[in-house]
Design a protein around this nucleic acid. Structure first.
Length: 497
RNA sequence: GAGCCAUUAGCUCAGUCGGUAGAGCACCGGACUUUUAAUCCGGGCGCCCGGGGUUCGAAUCCCCGAUGGCUCACCA
């Protein structure tokens, strides 16, 4: 049995009393020659139109449609609430106006039924803008009851598995997903306006690249070969830079075969942006402007409230190198230390360092443990060690670190960007190091991508690149503490037994 | 993967010391022609997450499992 057959549902083969009664009503409609699953319905207005333009519409005949979410009967007159895509409006019906037959049919309607209504706009004694029903059509008979009207649907398991009920019962949930849509639209408009070209690259990869992550494996039957779901679009997008598409971006899903948490879902949405002849600084400026633009768009201000804290996204954001950040938050200066010394200091501070670990790993550990949680931000963390940045260009005056940056806000890494490595020989060596790490058991290390090296060998212009996790951005701008709150259908284990 | 917590009616939740199941909403019957968590009268809901065990007796105690949440780990 799966959830579609239990929980809010009560089972396919076990109909509870309410479901039996609704099925009986379905037959009653059919017996009267009425198809309880109607067809197209011409609407003149949605609920919000009527509420907004009452002065012009008072006394007018309108046609609306939606789901009945409440009924308040008074004998020979009744009220109901009708929920459509724009909101809720009250319905009113009187036996004097519609006659006994239609009134009886109205009384048979259940909460959850979808109806179309033709009626007149008026305001009740209590002052509520309403539509008095002249006639109505049953458009869809609901065979299962709605969640409770006052407390809504609270069970998080049901909210995620049966998101449609969540959307009906909890209006603020709808607002989050409307905001999500506007954010993605905002990103697209922001980039298009600046001359970036939107492209699509493969999600089925022969070699997954562009990130350190375990991929999902799938299989192509006709070719009889395994393929990987992409973990990032990066290497394809940079091939486009080689091809002369100088400013490109892609919005889409990435798939990572990793743990699930309040900040991680196996499939998530990112935007990646590349600009030829730019560098990390170009992309940091772009990031600041983009985030500030989106905050204004969604929140009306760059001062965004997240879980009680105010975060000001107005540019410019401070920049802090990884080593300076560690010095500041951990009180340890790793600058000038060699591998052995750095590892020793890390161990002294209680971090586990695997055999063969060097300064780069020590820096990474210090950063994760002491720095990251403190980065309320916004702040750009820069100059990551070259070992953990295999696609980023080395800093001109220090080849041990890269021209890389990560925007941090509320302690989360919101993205990643750098001056792109366009030296094919250096890139090949970096891949080779990754392959060694893979052999040593790191299944998140990169694979060798010869085809990508060949592309670089044709000459890729110097460029800046940026990736932003859109889900986390939506969390930030909608004050949502869990990634599941911004994914319509977050990944859930199937219900067994 | 580990720890903690949760799972009882369609939904939201109570359930005492282990004595065999309750409330509100929803539903059903009745009253009510401007209510809005409508109101009033009457009614019955159930695989107490699943499986074992202890016990005369288990929603309750013990063990195993499932799903979810949080924290940590993993992970950008």
């Amino acid at each position: 049995m799966n959830v579609g057959e239990e929980g809010a549902t009560g089972g396919m083969d076990e109909l509870n009393d309410q479901m039996l009664i609704r099925r009986q009503k379905l037959e009653d409609w059919r017996d009267e020659g009425i198809d309880p699953y109607g067809h197209r319905y011409e609407r003149t207005h949605v609920a919000r139109d009527i509420l907004n333009a009452f002065d012009e519409l008072e006394g007018e005949i309108v046609s609306i449609a939606g789901r009945i979410t409440a009924k308040r009967g008074h004998g020979k007159a009744s009220f109901a609430d009708l929920l459509d895509g724009s909101g809720t409006i009250q319905l009113f019906i009187r036996i004097n106006t519609v006659g006994e037959e239609l009134y009886t049919q109205y009384q048979r309607l259940d909460l959850g039924d979808v109806i179309g209504v033709v009626g007149s706009v008026f305001r009740t004694r209590q002052g509520e803008i309403s539509v008095e029903i002249h006639e109505f059509s049953l458009l869809s008979k609901a065979l299962r009851p709605l969640p409770e009207k006052w407390h809504g649907l609270k069970d998080v398991d049901l909210r995620y598995r049966m998101r449609y009920l969540d959307l009906i019962a909890n209006p603020q949930v709808r607002d989050v997903f409307i905001a999500r849509s506007r954010i993605i639209q905002g990103i697209r408009e922001f980039l298009l306006k600046r001359g970036y070209l939107e492209v699509e690259t493969p999600m089925l990869n022969v070699i997954p690249g562009g990130a350190n992550a375990r991929p999902f494996v799938t299989h192509h039957n006709a070719l009889d070969m395994d393929l990987y779901m992409r973990i990032a679009p990066e290497l394809y997008l940079k091939r486009l830079l080689v091809g002369g598409l100088e400013k490109v971006f892609e919005i889409g899903k990435n798939f990572r075969n990793e743990g699930i948490s309040t900040k991680h879902n196996p499939e998530y949405t990112s935007v990646e942006v590349y600009e030829a002849y730019g560098d990390a600084n170009t992309m940091m400026a772009l990031t600041e402007e983009l985030f500030a633009y989106l905050a204004e768009l969604i929140c009306g201000t760059t001062r965004v409230e997240f879980q009680g804290n105010i975060i000001d996204l107005a540019p410019p954001w401070p920049r802090l190198t990884m080593l300076d950040a560690i010095k500041q938050y951990a009180g340890v200066d790793l600058r000038g230390l060699d591998d052995q010394e750095a590892v020793r200091v890390a161990k002294e501070r209680g971090m586990e360092m695997p055999a063969g670990a060097g300064k780069a790993q020590a820096i990474n550990e210090f950063f994760d443990n002491f720095v990251e949680p403190n980065l309320t931000g916004p702040v750009f963390i820069t100059e990551h060690p070259v070992e953990i940045s295999p696609l980023a260009k080395r800093k001109a005056d220090d080849p041990t670190v890269t021209e890389r940056f990560e925007p941090f806000i509320v302690g989360w890494e919101m993205g990643n960007g750098f001056t792109e490595l366009n030296d094919p020989i250096d890139q090949k060596e970096r891949f080779q190091e990754q392959v060694e790490q893979r052999k040593a058991g790191d299944d998140e290390a990169h694979m060798m991508d010869e085809d990508y090296i060949i592309a670089l060998e044709h000459g890729m212009p110097p460029a800046g690149g940026l990736g932003v996790g859109i889900d986390r951005l939506v969390m930030l701008l909608t004050d949502s503490p869990s990634i599941r709150d911004v994914l319509l259908f977050p990944h859930m284990r199937p219900r067994s037994e």
